Simulated assay, not measured.
Amino acid sequence: MLAYSYLFFFVALISVGPIPKKVKLFLLFVILSFFAGTRLDIDNDYGLYEYNIQYIESSIKDFATRDSPMEWCMYIIPNFLKLFIQSKVEIINYTFLTFAFLGVGIKLIAINRLTPFFFLSIILYTANLYFMQEMTTIRAGVATGIFLWSIKDIEENRNKIFFVKLGCAFLFHYSSIVFVMTWLLHKFNVKYKWLILGLCLAMLVPILNLNFIEILHLNVISDKADAYMKIQEYEEKKLNLFNFKIIISLFYLIIFYWQRNKISVVGFDLLLKIHFLSLILFFLFSTTGLTFSLRTFELLSIIQVILYPLIILCFMSKLRIWGYLLVMGTSFIFFYYNIFIADFLKEYTSWLF
């Protein structure tokens, strides 16, 4: 696991270093993209991606009518690469690299535009969602990058641009439909009292053992939801409702809601409401299995890299060092858990060396 530690150290060093912002962004893009994009079989999803890329249909008609529907990015990217590359192994390798370029690149653009605390946002991203998305659920990684990129469009009521970006995200992950809910939060200016009520009711779902995929017939409407329901039958691990990531999320939620009047950053209100929504959906779908609940939560959790550092503004000027330490501590907890405790990444290997 030494390679992951070195990566985290170098990313932190570059982010905080006294070099121009454009140089930082370029270096971060190269390092993070190639590290994720050239890795071999080190995660649980790699084999399935490798198989799908290798045997993807060449005909649009065949792909559109396949028995198990798949996002269009899995057709477009490999078949585009086939125009220039003949080797199946190289097509697989460069498909992964393309996903990494898109996922990392779009996120860096969005982070640079949205955060007033660049260093903290970068280490939060690298410590957690980089490993969860760019190194594992690569399609979701691109979709969440596009969503983060669209936050300003929601805030500034650029509805057409938002829905164009949503359509692009949908090409990478059908679950991107959940991003419409964030637009609705802003469009109808949903009050915090309704979000608090929604969260309290959602927390009752696991107690009452309600299954909202079945109640809302999502397994009939969506093949993806139906697949998650079937996966639940074979899951050995049960969902820990109050795992450390949820506890951390609830901690930041309480602090931000309590201190919300102290934060005047444009977009904060929307970010906090999306944070509420991510927890509501986590508990709402908690009885449908580990995969569906956590992955729905993680899709929206990308906003944490912008939201969490804003906790610094909750402290008085003389005490803001504690805000920095809090966010850095959160990042290190995420990193330690993802690399040394969670069992989803193997020892790093790359086809570059």
Rank of each mutant, 00 (worst) to 15 (best):
P20Y: 11
I138K: 02
K262S: 12
T95S: 12
Y252A: 07
L32H: 01
F242G: 14
L108I: 02
V11M: 04
L284W: 15
V305I: 11
G47T: 11
A143E: 14
F29Q: 05
D223R: 08
K230N: 12
I109M: 10
G47D: 02
I60C: 08
I85W: 13
K193P: 03
N338H: 15
V205Q: 03
S286Y: 04
N219V: 01
I339N: 09
E50N: 12
Y94A: 05
F188K: 01
L25Q: 10
I151K: 09
G267T: 09
S150K: 07
F119K: 13
L108E: 04
K273G: 08
F285G: 01
M70Y: 00
A143M: 12
I53F: 13
S301D: 12
T287A: 11
I177M: 13
D153N: 13
M132H: 02
N159W: 02
A12Y: 08
V104L: 03
L185P: 01
D269P: 00
W322N: 06
L277I: 06
K165M: 10
K165D: 14
I122Y: 07
S286H: 04
D223G: 05
N52L: 13
N219P: 03
Y75K: 11
K165C: 13
V142K: 15
L40D: 03
T144G: 03
I246F: 00
N159K: 12
K152L: 12
I111P: 01
F10D: 02
M70C: 05
A143I: 12
H275T: 02
K187G: 08
F251Q: 08
F163P: 06
I76Y: 14
I111F: 00
L197N: 05
L270G: 04
F344C: 05
H186A: 15
I247A: 12
F334M: 08
G145E: 07
L171H: 14
F242M: 15
S175N: 10
F117D: 15
T38R: 03
V164I: 13
P309Y: 09
W149C: 07
I31E: 01
T95C: 07
S317D: 15
A3F: 15
A127T: 03
K165R: 14
K193A: 02
G17C: 11
P206W: 06
F80G: 05
M181R: 11
N44F: 06
F117I: 13
V104N: 03
D41P: 03
I123E: 04
L185D: 09
F340V: 07
S293Y: 03
R320P: 08
K165W: 12
Y130L: 01
I196A: 14
L185W: 10
L250Y: 00
W149G: 00
I339W: 04
L148R: 11
Y6D: 09
K61W: 13
F118M: 11
V220E: 10
I311V: 15
I280K: 09
A169S: 15
F10Y: 11
P18M: 08
V190Q: 09
